[in-house]
Design a protein around this nucleic acid. Structure first.
Length: 742
DNA sequence: TGTAGGCAAAATCCATGCGACGT
DNA sequence: ACGTCGCATGGATTTTGCCT
C-alpha cells in the first residue's frame, strides 16, 4: 500500500471516521478519511464486571496501577459511560473528550506537523481524497514547514454614527490580500459577497487571516450572505463556515486564524487593535489610522483614504502572521490543538491538552472527567515590603522557572501530596514527568538553536519552539489551582507555593547573614546591594544547598522604590530604564499622565536630580492646566469585564458604555471603553463622555492636572521626599475667584 | 473555554455623626 | 424635646490592571 505524507492542518469529526485535512508532500492538498471509534476506560467495581467487546488494559490512577476495561462506544460515550456508572459497574474515565481531540490524543498525531498514513486514493480534484488503510503515525523527526497559502481579509460595513449591525447594514466592501497584491472588492453587496467567495476558492488558501473574525466578521458575513440568498461556500469542500465550540468559527479544510486572539499572548499590547499589534512586532503602521466611529463618514467623504487603510490592514495581517506563525505552529504541535484553535483556546486548555496527550500516550494515566468544583484559594508567594527611596548599585537575583523547577525537584504531584499538604516520597509523579519532558525538549531546542547562524530560519523556528514550550511549562502550576481543570488540585498548588516561600525565605536570610542588604523581593526574586563577590557566593550557595538555579538577572545603577509593593523603576548600567507596576505602564491611565511620570522618572534616575524632576512635574501640570495637550492623550481606557447592567457600583466606564450602547454603538464584554473627563458638577461618573464626543473646551483640565498628572508624578517624587500637595499648591496659582473669595 | 495569588489605587458606597432647622 | 434634612467624614467595597 502506498504511504501518504502530509502536514496536518485540521481534524474534523465525521461520524464513524475522522477527516484529516493536510498539505501533501507533493504540494497537493488532501483529505484522508480515517475510521475511528470513540472509547473510554472503565475501572470496574469488582472482578465480576464484564463489558461485551471491551478489552482489558493496565492503566494508572494517581500513579497506582489499575486494571481497566477499554470500552468502545457505540454512539455517545458520555451517555454510555454515565449509564455504566449509574449501574454501579465502576468509575469511567476519558468519556467526555471530543472525538476529534480524542483521536489526536490517542494516536499521538500532531497538528501543524508531518504525518504519514497508508491510504488509497478515492478521488482527485481541487484536492485529493484518500481512505486510510492503516493507522496514521506522526513523523516526529521531520521539522520543515511546507509552503502555506495564505489569504487575509477585512470587511467594510457602513453605518452612520453607530456600530454596523448585520440585520441592518450591508457589507460595502471586502479587502483581501493573497501575498501578491491587495485589492478591495466593492459595489453592490451581492456582488461583493459573491466575488469574495470566488476569490477565496480561486486562491484556495490553507490559512485565512482575519482580525476579530471569530467575534465579528464570520457571523456578520454569513448573515448577510444568508440575507441575500447566497451560499457562503468557503470550505475546501464547498461547505459554509460553521460555529465550532466556544465562539470559534470553523472553515472546513482551512485554518481560520483570528489574529486579534494573539494579543492575549502579548501582555505588552494593551489595546486589541491591529495597529498596536503591528507596532509591537515592528511592522510599520499608519500614523493616523481611522477609528471605528469614523468609517461610515470616511466611506462617504474620502473613500480612497479608507480603502488605502483597509489594504494596509490586510497586508499587515500577512506580516503579523509571518512574524508569529512559527510560534503558533509550535504551540499547536506541542499542545495537540489545531492551529486555528490554539490561539482561541484559553491557557488552561492549552496546558490540559498537553497533559491529556502525555497521560494517554506516555504515562498511561487515566484522564479524569471535567466536573464543576468549588474554587478554593490558598496562599501564594512572598512579597517583601520594599525599602523606599533611591538605591544605588542593586543586584536582582531570581530563580529560573521557579515553580516548574520546584515541581520537578521536590516531586510535587497528585500522587505525592496528601490532602493535608504533606509530601510523600515515591517515584516521579505525573506532573513532574510531564514537566520534565517539556523542559528537556526546551533545552534540546535551545542547544540546537545555538548551532544555527543568527538570523537563519532554523534558528527562528527553534526559538519559537522553546518559547512555546516555556509558555506551557510556566502555566502548569497555575493550571493545578484552576477549578475548571480536570486535574484540579489546590492542595498541590498550595504545596508548590509553600516550597517557593521556603526557598526564597532561605535566600533572603542567607543574603542577610552574608551582609548583603535586601531591598525588596517578590515570589522568586530578591533585590540586594550589589557586592560582586558576595553575590557570586550567594548564587553558588543556592545552587549547592538548594539544588535550584538562580541567576543574576540585572544590575541596577539606580532603583527607586516607594512604600508600595510591586511598583518601582530602575536604570541599568547601560542606561536602560525599567518601569514596573507604576502608572506609566498601566493601560488605564491617560497618556499625558503616563508620559509625565515617565519623564519625571527619567530625570530622577538619569540625572539623579530631585529638584529638576520636581520642576519637570510642575511643567507638565502647568501645561495641562493651560489645556495644551492633544485630546487623544486624555483618553482613559478601561475594560468592560461584565455585562453593563451587572455593575454594582456606578463605574465611570460602565456609564459611558451604557451611553454608547443607547446611541447604537456595539459595546461588549471584553471591549475597552475610552472616555474623557469633562467639566461639571457631581461625581466623576456624571462627568465622563465617550472620547470621540469631547471637544477641548469641555475638558476638565483641573481633573487631569490633579488626579492624573500630579497623582502619577507625585507618587514617584514622594520617594525622594517631594510631597504631592506641594507639587500642586506651588504650581496652581490662585485664580481671581479664589483671591476675592478670601 | 477562566492558569494562580498578591497588590495598589481610584471611585463609589454606606454608615455615622453633627449641626441646623422646623414643628 | 424631637424628628429629619443636608453634609462631611472615614472605612468598606467595587473595580481594574498590574507583578511574579
Amino acid at each position: 500500500m502506498p504511504e501518504v505524507r502530509f502536514w496536518l492542518l485540521d481534524v474534523m469529526d465525521a461520524g464513524e471516521a475522522v477527516d484529516l485535512w493536510g498539505l501533501g508532500e507533493d504540494g497537493r492538498r488532501l483529505m484522508i478519511e480515517v475510521p475511528f471509534r470513540s472509547y473510554f476506560y472503565l475501572v470496574p467495581s469488582s472482578d465480576y464486571v464484564k463489558v461485551k467487546g471491551a478489552q482489558e488494559v493496565d492503566m494508572f490512577r494517581m500513579g497506582k496501577r489499575v486494571r481497566c476495561l477499554r470500552v468502545e462506544a457505540q454512539d455517545d460515550p458520555s451517555k454510555e459511560a454515565e449509564e455504566m456508572m449509574s449501574r454501579g459497574l465502576g468509575d469511567a474515565y476519558g468519556y467526555d473528550i471530543r472525538r476529534s481531540d480524542l483521536f489526536l490524543i490517542s494516536t499521538g498525531l500532531r497538528p501543524s506537523a508531518w504525518t504519514a498514513a497508508e491510504a488509497e486514493r478515492v478521488s482527485s480534484g481541487a484536492y485529493d481524497v484518500y481512505r486510510s488503510t492503516g493507522p496514521p503515525r506522526s513523523l516526529e523527526d521531520r521539522k520543515d514547514v511546507p509552503r502555506i497559502r495564505i489569504l487575509s481579509f477585512d470587511p467594510i460595513y457602513i453605518s452612520r454614527n453607530a456600530s454596523p449591525r448585520p440585520e441592518r447594514d450591508p457589507v460595502a466592501a471586502v479587502s483581501i490580500y493573497d501575498g501578491s497584491s491587495a485589492k478591495t472588492i466593492a459595489g453592490d453587496e451581492q456582488y461583493v459577497l459573491r466575488s469574495f467567495v470566488e476569490e477565496v476558492m480561486r486562491a484556495d488558501p490553507d490559512v485565512i487571516l482575519g482580525f476579530q473574525s471569530n467575534r465579528v466578521h464570520w457571523n456578520y458575513l454569513s448573515r448577510r450572505a444568508e440575507n441575500s440568498g447566497l451560499r457562503f461556500s468557503l470550505g475546501r469542500d464547498g461547505s459554509e463556515p460553521h460555529g465550532s465550540v466556544y465562539g470559534h468559527v470553523s472553515i472546513r479544510g482551512r485554518a481560520n486564524v483570528d489574529l486579534s486572539e494573539f494579543v492575549d499572548e502579548v501582555p505588552e499590547v494593551k489595546l486589541e487593535r491591529l495597529e498596536e499589534l503591528s507596532k509591537y512586532l515592528g511592522i510599520e503602521a499608519p500614523r493616523e489610522a481611522p477609528e471605528y466611529f469614523e468609517i461610515g463618514e470616511l466611506w462617504e467623504k474620502d473613500r480612497r483614504k479608507l480603502v488605502e487603510y483597509f489594504e494596509w490592514r490586510v497586508r499587515a495581517m500577512f506580516d503579523v502572521f509571518s512574524a508569529i506563525s512559527d510560534y503558533v505552529f509550535n504551540l499547536s504541535s506541542i499542545t495537540g490543538l489545531p492551529p486555528d484553535h490554539v490561539l482561541t483556546a484559553a491557557t488552561g486548555f492549552k496546558v490540559e491538552n498537553y497533559l491529556m496527550r502525555f497521560a494517554e500516550l506516555e504515562a498511561r494515566e487515566l484522564i479524569p472527567p471535567r466536573k464543576e468544583t468549588r474554587h478554593v484559594t490558598y496562599q501564594g508567594g512572598i512579597v517583601l515590603q520594599p525599602k523606599p527611596g533611591l538605591h544605588r548599585g542593586i543586584a536582582v537575583l531570581d530563580f529560573k522557572s521557579m515553580y516548574p523547577s520546584i515541581i520537578i525537584k521536590y516531586n510535587i504531584s497528585l500522587e505525592t501530596v496528601d490532602e493535608g499538604g504533606s509530601l510523600r516520597s515515591g517515584p516521579p509523579g505525573f506532573l513532574p514527568r510531564a514537566l520534565r519532558r517539556l523542559l528537556d525538549e526546551r533545552s534540546r531546542a535551545r542547544e540546537e538553536e545555538a548551532r544555527y547562524p543568527e538570523g537563519s530560519s532554523e534558528r527562528k523556528v527553534l526559538d519559537a519552539k522553546q518559547r512555546a514550550l516555556k509558555r506551557i511549562a510556566n502555566a502548569t502550576y497555575g493550571y493545578t489551582g484552576w477549578s475548571g481543570a480536570r486535574w484540579y488540585a489546590p492542595h498541590v498548588a498550595a504545596a508548590i507555593t509553600a516550597k517557593g516561600r521556603e526557598v526564597i525565605s532561605s535566600v533572603i536570610s542567607k543574603a542577610g547573614e552574608m551582609g548583603l542588604e535586601v531591598i525588596y523581593g517578590d515570589t522568586d526574586s530578591v533585590f540586594v546591594s550589589h557586592d560582586e563577590g558576595k553575590v557570586r557566593e550567594l548564587l553558588r550557595w543556592v545552587e549547592e544547598s538548594l539544588g535550584l538555579e538562580v541567576k543574576l538577572e540585572k544590575i541596577y545603577r539606580g532603583v527607586l522604590f516607594t512604600e508600595a509593593k510591586k511598583r518601582y523603576a530602575g536604570i541599568t548600567e547601560d542606561g536602560e530604564l525599567d518601569v514596573v507596576g507604576l502608572e506609566a505602564v498601566r493601560g488605564d491611565w491617560s497618556e499625558v499622565a503616563k508620559r509625565a511620570q515617565m519623564n519625571v522618572l527619567e530625570v530622577l534616575l538619569r540625572e539623579e536630580s530631585p529638584e529638576r524632576a520636581e520642576e519637570t512635574a510642575r511643567e507638565w501640570i502647568r501645561r495641562v492646566r493651560a489645556g495644551n495637550v492633544p485630546l487623544k492623550d486624555l483618553i482613559i481606557w478601561k475594560q468592560l469585564t461584565k455585562p453593563i447592567d451587572e455593575y454594582e457600583a456606578t463605574a465611570p466606564h460602565a456609564v459611558v458604555a451604557r451611553e454608547m450602547r443607547e446611541k447604537g454603538w456595539d459595546v461588549r464584554i471584553g471591549d475597552k471603553v475610552g472616555f474623557i473627563v469633562v467639566k461639571g458638577a457631581g461625581k466623576l461618573h456624571e462627568r465622563v463622555k465617550p472620547y470621540f464626543e469631547v471637544t477641548a473646551d469641555q475638558v476638565d483640565w483641573d481633573y487631569y492636572a490633579e488626579k492624573q498628572v500630579a497623582a502619577a508624578c507625585g507618587r514617584v517624587l514622594e520617594a525622594v521626599g517631594v510631597d504631592e500637595s506641594k507639587l500642586l499648591s506651588a504650581s496652581k496659582g490662585m485664580s481671581l475667584e479664589e483671591f476675592f473669595g478670601k
